[in-house]
Design a protein around this nucleic acid. Structure first.
Lengths: 334, 334
DNA sequence: CTTTGTGATTGTTACGTTTTAATCGAGGCG
DNA sequence: CGCCTCGATTAAAACGTAACAATCACAAAG
């Protein structure tokens, strides 16, 4: 019940509330002797600053919002780890929102962020929607796109080249002698899927193959379960290609499970490549060939950009950073 | 910059600020005609409630804090999914804090929760510390322990019986004809590790074996990397037991990787069992025998209890709920 | 015609902090 | 000794909302 406020601390230390506030926010402005007196009063009373009052008065909080598509995907927890490390280094807390790929949930998370008056938002948008983000900016909330290239130059964005990645993946499958090719992917609205597909088609064209040969299997989610269902679907169709490119590792691991259960040998019967190179990719039944991304770094850099924009709104120069992915060859491809 | 407040909405709708507040918080108290008028004013102006002002005035926010030990562990993301689902059903937002097993980071997260005046806190404590949590309660913040049994009856707690689980695991290994037994675990401060160990020892005693035979390998973290290091350590020692119980699946998957890389056959040379039955356990090179817990449910129930306590502080009856784990047998054990 | 009751709306105050301008005190300098 | 400067401190005014008592309109009851 005890709600000890700045006033109580002030009384205890024999100073005014304003001085306590200064100790909290601009310690260098207050004389050493009074500062230590105030600090010990804070300790003795167990005072903790009322963040809401502070936010209300200051006009902004010391939190940033992070909205990701699927917190169950290790790719995003790695990103989140990078975000959290940088944020807490710089005195910010992170509010994590998981959209589960649902536009409605994403919208609700952004609303929560707006209500909390977060200082900035890091978002991996689940679809193209410059509008919603502009609404946030209009409210004075900085936005940085994560794992999504910038559509415009008036914003920061950090991404990994998914076209290149998709191209690398399919080029690798073709080098392995792939005949028929399949692309197992998520909802068409997800940009990562589109780009990886585009890269895949480019690689086919470059190899003198008709990109239209690429058989697409689109699933409503990008989870291991969905991957397994995709396997069942392809097996039931009797249309199993002899090389499969999965748009992420979860799909690939589910696919792998589905194939092995049906007695399909990987990579002997079917070559399989995933995307993201999550930690579990190398531990799977047949270790997974995948496309590695600098995940943790993605989160760190994005947060650095965001906080730089927040703290130096005038001098800040927007940056669009694009990392390059790497191919990691393991057992699942020929 | 546009900071449109409740007053602007009131002016637009031709009512007083108090009425707008009523529309927001107790819509049933306001006449239909005025309510719709206010609602459209809100929409037209793009008003979003200032959560901090609301919190400041109301004395509490509509957020709950969730502090977990390792967000990189799928076990905790599953718990978090349950928490988030219930919280958002009931109009609460979740602030997620990751302690990474560090007491200092946990402390910092709790401080953030306190500053934000969260309504309640869900926590998987990384060590025994009734004190810190009591400090939160003294501030009027409800606390529910997650995946941790209650030490006292004046608090809610939701857990899974780890002693039983540990016992099941080792009993299974012994049934498989295990001679020497190893227990690969995390920091000794983690209660889950202690309990699983205790269960393991009980199972040995029940089988007429000396519990002191159980060779313990304690790692500083409970990650896949740590598991692999444990494998290297055991191999270097030349002291590899012929059955291993790992305190969680990440350790077990890392151990598996380490063993296979060294040419040790699982389960032929070494039987291996994990704990948690994360999704990836069934997809690994040699699919992992494990102990399953009702993870998602854990998060749901804990959140239900927490919000019940917050919303009905008087009638609320504290509950200590203990789920039972299940053994899931796969390929990694004889 | 007054009183009473009821449901809807409003005015006001307080929440705990930050911030700005104002005040204070102590030296330094002419 | 008076004037100025400068650093340290303070007083007071917000910030946007919720809650409560007060008011209002209006109809039913007496």
């Amino acid at each position: 019940m005890s709600t000890v406020s700045i006033k109580d601390v002030a009384a205890r230390a024999g100073v005014s509330p304003g001085t306590v506030s200064n100790v909290l926010n601009r310690p260098e402005k207050v004389a050493d002797s009074t500062r230590t007196r105030v600090e010990s009063a804070i300790r003795e009373l167990g005072f903790v600053r009322h963040g809401s009052a502070s936010t209300l008065r200051a006009g902004h909080s010391r939190t940033v919002g992070l909205s990701v598509i699927d917190i169950g995907n290790p790719f995003f927890t790695d990103v989140a780890a990078g975000v959290e490390d940088v944020a807490s280094e710089r005195g910010y807390a992170v509010i994590l929102g998981n959209s589960s790929g649902s536009r409605m949930k994403e919208e609700r998370n952004l609303l929560v962020f707006a209500e909390q008056r977060v200082r900035g938002v890091l978002i991996t948008p689940s679809d193209e929607d410059p509008q919603r983000l502009d609404q946030l900016r209009a409210r004075g909330i900085c936005v940085v796109l994560v794992d999504h290239p910038a559509e415009r130059s008036d914003q920061c964005a950090v991404a990994v080249n998914d076209v290149t990645g998709g191209s690398m993946a399919v080029a690798h499958l073709l080098e392995g002698g792939a005949g028929s090719l399949g692309f197992v992917t998520g909802p068409a609205t997800i940009r990562q899927c589109q780009d990886r597909r585009r890269g895949a088609e480019q690689a086919m064209a470059a190899a003198g193959r008709d990109p239209r040969e690429l058989r697409e299997v689109a699933m409503p989610a990008m989870t291991a379960k969905a991957g397994q269902q995709a396997a069942e679907k392809l097996l039931a169709d009797g249309s199993m290609p002899d090389a499969l490119f999965c748009a992420n590792d979860l799909l690939a691991l589910g696919m792998l499970r589905g194939l092995l259960q049906a007695g399909v040998r990987v990579p002997h019967d079917v070559s399989l490549i995933g995307y993201d190179d999550i930690d579990f990719a190398s531990a799977s039944t047949v270790s997974l060939t995948s496309i590695r991304q600098p995940t943790y770094q993605l989160g760190r850099v994005a947060t650095d950009l965001l906080l730089d924009e927040c703290d130096n709104p005038d001098t800040h120069a927007h940056q669009q950073i694009m990392f390059q992915p790497d191919l990691v060859v393991r057992e699942s491809t020929r």
